[in-house]
């Protein structure tokens, strides 16, 4: 068996800050009355400050794996290390107060106000009132809900999207280093989900948590994850890699099939426009810059292609945050640019 600082997946180690935040070592779970394990001999290391997406078909053990990390489900065998500490034997309630937890059904306490919901863990940790109040307002701001407007509302007075924002704020309340999220945006309509994704990434840029995120939606996994762990039935890991790696180098047939057709198109999501060598916008030519369809520089090639097809045009202008055009992308030079980028990543 390996030492605590090694990990089976070759993620950088050594310096404590480089040490993985969560390590699963030979973790199995067999439910009572069943012979086939839901999760079998799983090794997994989650790097500090990154988002790891647990993906797979239903019944693949991804949720079981997630719930073993905060011991809502007790592993049958194996060790789970949190920041180097074996947590399989510690008090489960104390452990969970150090780990944020967000679920699909949100599970806000209906008899508590939004503020009281967020304050639950700080209250259990014995923070003083002033500090709790400050923290609640800070978190509401962070998730984009105006404290004065939302603090004293009850959950039933919120929309689904707002409820899940509060759910995320509640999980972040005591500033836990780790967050576990079980299909948090699964029950939310596609438009709102898209927006929540962007906000979620924005929040993560500020808080830099170590996040495990269960989803069955590969699209979501590619968009949000720094790493993706694809599970096959029986809780085995089929591939654990970056989104790019999963899309371009599926480790086996299962992953290839799971990724399905269109992997190349999906990979366009991963190529930021800012990494391309954009064309200049020719002045005086027709159509003029002002009339061009625009996409933001922060977007991906996917967004640019989508905009082109949508407007049935062969050129889009790429604009920065101030709306200033920084370049153009043309349909007929796109493949060339991708080739070029492939050669000089």
């Amino acid at each position: 068996m390996s030492e605590t600082t090694t990990n089976p997946h070759g993620i950088a180690e050594g310096h404590p800050d480089q040490r993985p935040m969560i390590v699963l070592e030979g973790v199995s779970k067999t439910y009572p009355g069943q012979t086939i394990p839901a999760v079998a001999e799983l090794d997994l290391a989650v790097p500090r400050g990154s988002i790891v997406m647990l993906v797979g078909p239903s019944g693949c053990g991804k949720t079981t794996t997630l719930k073993m990390m905060n011991r809502l489900i007790e592993p049958t065998t194996g060790r789970i290390l949190l920041d180097g500490e074996d947590v399989t034997g510690v008090n489960a309630d104390q452990l969970r107060r150090r780990i944020g937890y967000v679920i699909q059904q949100v599970g806000l306490f209906p008899h508590f106000t939004v503020g009281e919901n967020i304050a639950v863990v700080p209250r259990m940790l014995g923070w003083d009132r002033q500090r709790i109040r400050q923290r609640v307002d800070e978190l509401l701001e962070l998730v984009g809900l105006h404290p004065r407007e939302f603090r004293d509302r009850y959950p039933r007075q919120l929309s689904g999207g707002q409820q899940q924002r509060v759910g995320v704020a509640r999980a972040l309340a005591a500033d836990p280093p780790v967050m576990l999220m079980d299909e948090p945006f699964g029950a939310i309509d596609p438009v709102t989900r898209e927006r929540l994704h962007d906000e979620f990434l924005e929040i993560q840029r500020t808080v830099r948590k170590t996040i495990c995120f269960v989803t069955h939606d590969l699209q979501e996994a590619i968009k949000l994850g720094d790493h993706i762990a694809i599970f096959t039935a029986g809780g085995r890991l089929a591939q654990y890699d970056t989104p790019e790696g999963i899309l371009s180098r599926p480790a086996n047939d299962f992953v290839a099939e799971f990724v399905g057709s269109g992997a190349a198109v999906r990979r366009l999501h991963l190529i930021a426009l800012s990494t391309l060598d954009l064309d200049e916008i020719a002045t005086g030519s027709s159509p003029t810059a002002a009339a061009l369809v625009t996409v933001p520089l922060s977007g991906s090639v996917y967004d640019a292609v989508d905009a082109m097809l949508d407007a049935q045009t062969s050129v889009v202008a790429v604009v920065d945050d101030d709306g200033q055009a920084v370049g153009a992308l043309r349909w007929n030079t796109l493949v060339e640019k991708l080739q070029l980028r492939g050669l000089h990543p």
């Binding site: 104390q94 969970r96 949100v106 599970g107 806000l108 209906p110 759910g167």
Partner: peptide, 13 residues
């Protein structure tokens, strides 16, 4: 509601 209880538990109650 089961989800309310699960989140209570998940928060360490």
């Amino acid at each position: 509601d089961a989800s309310v209880l699960e989140s209570a538990k998940g928060l360490g109650m």
